[in-house]
Design a protein around this nucleic acid. Sequence first.
DNA 1: ACAGCGTTAGTTTTT
DNA 2: CTAACGCTGT
Length: 724
Amino acid sequence: MSDLLANLNPPQLAAVTLPAQHALILAGAGSGKTRVLTTRIAWLISTGQVGPQGILAVTFTNKAAKEMQSRLAAMLPINTRGMWIGTFHGLCNRLLRAHHREAGLPETFQILDAADQLSAIKRLLKNLNVDDEKFPPRELMHFINAHKEQGIRAAQAEAYDHYTSRRVELYTEYEGQCQREGVVDFAELLLRSYELLQRNEPLCRHYQERFRHILVDEFQDTNRLQYAWLKLLAGRGSVRPETPGACVFAVGDDDQSIYAFRGAEIGNMRDLQREFELPSVIRLEQNYRSHGNILDAANALIKQNVGRLGKNLWTEAGAGEPIRVFEGISDFDEARFIVDEISELLREGIGRDQIALLYRSNAQSRVLEHQLFTAGVPYRVHGGLRFFDRQEIKHALAYLRLIANPDDDTAFARVVNFPTRGIGTRSLEALQEAAQRNNASLYNAAASLAGKAGTAVARFVALIEDLRADTRARSLPEVVDHLIDKTGLRQHYLAEKEGQDRLENLDELINAATTFLYEDSDQDGEPAANGGPLASFLAHASLEAGEHQAGEGETAVQLMTVHAAKGLEFDVVFITGLEQGLFPHENAAQERAGLEEERRLMYVAVTRARQRLYLTHAQTRMLHGQTRYCLPSSFVDELPAELLRRINRTASAGQPGRGAASAARQPPTAGHGLRIGQNVRHARFGVGVIVSTEGAGPEARVQVNFGAAGMKWLALEYARLTPA
DNA sequence: ACAGCGTTAGTTTTT
DNA sequence: CTAACGCTGT
């Protein structure tokens, strides 16, 4: 036990050994947050204050949950497998599997990922003859999810105008469709399990009494529903506020909250303080990651945000190197500089995987990739297709889903004619109609319509029945293997010229099933295995999308969005595309809340670097097929000048004036004396850059990027623009 | 059923 | 610019 607590700094120690009470730990970037969280659990258990079964530890990512579990296993001589450590969604799934009846779900309910949900919505709109121009499926999906994440059912949704009242109707229809099909989307996992606990008092009480300590990671990212769920389990929910429940130990960093756009509520941190009557918060401010200059820059930047809980990172490491700032003539030029610099770093012996290129949006990776490729530097782009998202995997899984749950129309629609087996649009329409008439699922309609053997539909039904029989006789990996053959998937991809990778992935799926069985088998006692191995494998596949690609072995320079970089660290970090309108993004920079989230994003980016940080931007950038003229990001100006070193390309490192760079030197003129790329001043909006022009004479308009004030179209006749 | 064409949209996305 | 989607014609 004593070595459990060894090497903790005073605030870390205080957090870990806090008596049984609610607590909020404000954990800055690189301050040992995961260590505190896991050590806290280990300390609670090893001092006998609680048994492993009395712990509930919640994270957002599978990665974090696994990390916590394995670190804990290393600290304690217990089997951590059966413990309730997992993601919000994983734990809710577990709860719903164990109590599917009470939750009103079939035993083999399936989980829709975002793509499944979208296709379910498209199908719904089609069936209801709703114009998807007027009700874009994506928008409707967002509408539904946003409501669920607030804990609002269709019945309670406010229909504040005609359009919304229709959307609420569609929300209702969607709920009905999911219920009929026995499927739940991600948000539903949470809402359903929240409602289960809220409505089932004995059950709720059971869990409230069981969990003595609830620990939450990345608390700043919780949405309203997740917070309500935690409150309920902690006995602070609205049902029985007097119930004595668990101690909540929340760890988070309001400065790293970058998911407000999908419902995360920073306000939950203040609410937690108030509603759980926290006497104080513990701050972890000593940073073990970055050199002083980097932290000073991060601190200075984030100070610009108002309403923070407040925190100042410091380090015992020295100031380190200055932050390097580079301005390229074009995005092309910027990328070339970065790759030149990387080549130099590699020569100095920095590991390739210790260099990260960060950007605000995925589209920016293109130029960087091009330069890296040309220079022959191995790189890896994060954020691509994930394993369980690949079409061949989704197809195979859809067959499995249909076997597990014949009512799953989404799965049915996906595979009924893939590979093609002569069930075209007309047959499908017939099935659709029959299904609607009998209020049955598509598969049921197919089964009853397949009276006469020999038809394509009958053969399909026979195939599924056949495969279902397989599941009783064979192990899961065998079932998957056979399925790939019998459905014709293997044959299909064998015939396809690009099919080799897909076949390999299908083989990998068989391996995944084997691994899953193996890992699942030593999970003791707990009701996770409800619904059989097939159902739990499918849940696993939906909840854990898998790493992007099986790491190709070779170490590589890492390319990713700033969002994707959260939680990671690198010796050398390049933050690229630091331009007004890009980062901060123009869609977010208008209101303060938006700009502040962008600033937190920048804060996250800066604090990824251990030793060296580069900030790069370009004067011009190809965006949406046209050249944009850009001002440097206001975030660069917010950093103390004494920490920065502006660098120019060394004479040897490539001559400017090639490629896009030369185009930038002669910006197109617009006939009225204003040049694209020229800086101008406007009475109200301040200084901006002319980005494009339109028309001539009194009609002429110019588009100006005013940075903080945003992008504006101005009629020259009215707007008095002066050169700046 | 599918290729080929035209149209459209284009921040971030742990589950 | 480009990728992805949907429609149309064969």
